[in-house]
């Protein structure tokens, strides 16, 4: 009885609370002290109320949110998740991944050889072509380029102004230049010629006015 004449410490009071809450009997000496000491009984009551209120408040708060309907929904969701978990996973194969990986090295080597042979053939072909090209073969291209460079489409007037002085065969040159002008002023595309014929041209109107 020696230790119990003093007031109960807080940890002892808390222990009593836990024991009592669990439905077990409180230590008889502590219970006797609590019955005799008003101060300790008051502290014990305060502690019990504090802890009980905390627990009740938390339970009420959660129960307000988790209504019976919500709990039913929760149960349904669990069943659905179990359904999904029970279903075997479906593996979707992608076309790009259908080729087995173990055959890749052979295919890759063959592809490399093919590429190398094609490149070599191209180089040899170009080299042989350059070496044995007929002397006149390149000319048309050059002359076409020259013709394009010397006869700009938008300068028929300039051509007339800078035309050289009439030579003995001046009529031929004049005809040539006229044809050239006509060629440049009219579309060359066969499909567009019919449209061009239907369209009045400034030069024809001007000629009529004159």
């Amino acid at each position: 009885m020696m230790g119990w004449t003093r007031h109960l410490r807080d940890d002892r009071l808390y222990e009593c609370y836990l024991v009592e809450r669990g439905g077990e009997a409180v230590d008889p000496r502590a219970a006797d002290h609590l019955a005799d000491c008003q101060s300790c009984a008051g502290r014990y009551r305060q502690l019990s109320e504090f802890l009980a209120t905390i627990g009740d408040e938390a339970a009420r708060e959660a129960d307000d949110l988790f209504t019976p309907e919500r709990l039913q929904q929760q149960q349904d969701a669990i069943q659905r998740k179990l359904d999904v978990a029970a279903r075997p996973a479906r593996v979707i194969s992608f076309p790009g991944q259908t080729a087995p990986t173990h055959t890749q090295p052979t295919t890759r080597v063959a592809t490399r050889w093919l590429a190398a042979a094609a490149a070599a053939g191209l180089i040899v072909g170009v080299g042989v072509g350059e070496t044995f090209r007929p002397s006149g073969a390149g000319e048309p291209a050059v002359s076409r380029a020259t013709a394009q460079a010397t006869t700009p489409r938008t300068a028929p007037a300039a051509l007339r102004v800078s035309a050289p002085a009439p030579a003995p065969d001046a009529n031929d040159d004049d005809r040539f230049l006229r044809e050239l002008e006509m060629a440049l002023q009219r579309p060359q595309t066969r499909e567009l010629l019919s449209f061009d014929n239907l369209t009045p041209h400034a030069r024809e109107i001007g000629r009529r006015v004159r």
Binding site: A58, A59, A62, F66, Q74, K81
Partner: peptide, 26 residues
């Protein structure tokens, strides 16, 4: 119900607590 109370006190978010309880049962 008890699980929802515990989960809610941990997470302080009813939707997340709901998820946590579902996952725990699964």
């Amino acid at each position: 119900r008890r699980a929802s109370r515990i989960a809610y006190q941990y997470l302080r978010d009813a939707a997340e607590a709901d998820e946590a309880v579902q996952d725990a049962f699964v």
